[in-house]
């Protein structure tokens, strides 16, 4: 049994962490090794933030970066301001969710059709790639022209941005079922539908969920980007970001950015959690 070292001296040697077997020591080690570092970095970051606000920027230019506590007081603790941000975030979340749901529906359908027929795959794939390659800003005017400058246009931006990873991942997943299992099913003379349902689709689930996760993040980005251009109706978080920036409302601007990032993180975690619930029992990451 090793003596517990002075916390300052604990090194982050992974092999030692594995070797240390005493439970209490393990708990402390986990804390010092995985929880402490990000907290320290966060504090360093706040320190830098204060430093820039108070030392680098003189009083006249301090509006460029308000110190953290002011961002908190004005952006979060003031309910009127904070509720405005929350409402914007909510409106953008709705757009992202609708966009993602559409992208998932279209993506799964297209990928399934492509997996069933080489001709369809060959026909559709180049367009899917093209869609991915289209600079979204280039077609913004067209989207507005066709679909107006409100909710529909924002949703369409989300779909365009998040569709491709779903198609590609699903198709890759569907085609990833091992040949041996295909042979096994062939020997039982199963129908195309049975093969899809019992083999190709379950085999594709890990890739499908990976695609969902990527697309969910993209869909949030799409909702905010769409907001910049198509602001009619309830203002989304993108509209608010623009408004705060134009009116030099630094505190609210930073608060909105923090909340948008939080939304991104929550979405990412949520889809990680869904994946774990759905297939965690049998699927392990390769890296594990």
């Amino acid at each position: 049994m090793r003596q517990l070292k002075d916390p300052d001296l604990i090194d982050v040697d992974a092999s030692e962490a594995i070797l240390s077997s005493e439970l209490g020591e393990k708990g402390i080690r986990r804390w010092t090794e995985s929880i402490l570092p990000p907290i320290l970095l966060g504090m360093a970051f706040l320190g830098l933030w204060y430093f820039i606000s108070y030392v680098v920027l003189d009083e006249k230019r301090r509006f460029l970066l308000r110190p953290p506590h002011e961002v908190f007081l004005v952006g979060f603790a003031n309910w009127k301001n904070f509720s405005e941000i929350l409402a914007g975030l909510w409106s953008s979340t709705i757009v992202a969710v609708i966009g993602l749901a559409l992208a998932i529906t279209i993506g799964l359908t297209l990928a399934t059709l492509m997996s069933q027929n080489k001709l369809i795959e060959r026909a559709v794939f180049p367009y899917a790639v093209t869609l991915q390659a289209v600079p979204i800003l280039a077609i913004v005017p067209l989207i507005g022209f066709w679909f107006g400058f409100g909710l529909n246009a924002r949703v369409i931006v989300c779909v365009i941005i998040s569709l491709f990873p779903i198609i590609v991942n699903t198709l890759f997943g569907l085609l990833s079922a091992p040949r041996g299992l295909h042979d096994l099913l062939t020997l039982q003379r199963v129908s195309r539908w049975t093969r899809l349902r019992k083999l190709m689709f379950p085999a594709a689930l890990p890739a499908i969920f990976a695609g969902f996760r990527i697309s969910a993040g993209l869909s949030v980005i799409g909702a905010i980007v769409g907001d910049f251009f198509f602001g009619r109706g309830d203002p989304g978080i993108g509209q608010l970001l623009q408004r705060y920036a134009n009116r030099l409302m630094g505190e609210q601007l930073l608060a909105s950015i923090i909340m948008s990032s939080l939304l991104g993180v929550v979405v990412f975690q949520l889809f990680g959690w869904i994946k774990e619930k759905a297939i965690g029992k049998w699927h392990q990451e390769q890296s594990g």
Binding site: P178, G180, L181, D183, L184, L187, Q188, K198, L199, P202, A203, L205, I279, W282, H283
Partner: peptide
């Protein structure tokens, strides 16, 4: 037909795999 590798479905338990055919 028993293949060279086990060709099991990862998403099925032992029971589920044996029931497949």
């Amino acid at each position: 037909y028993v293949f060279q590798d086990a060709t099991l479905m990862d998403w099925r338990t032992v029971q589920g795999n044996v029931e497949l055919l």
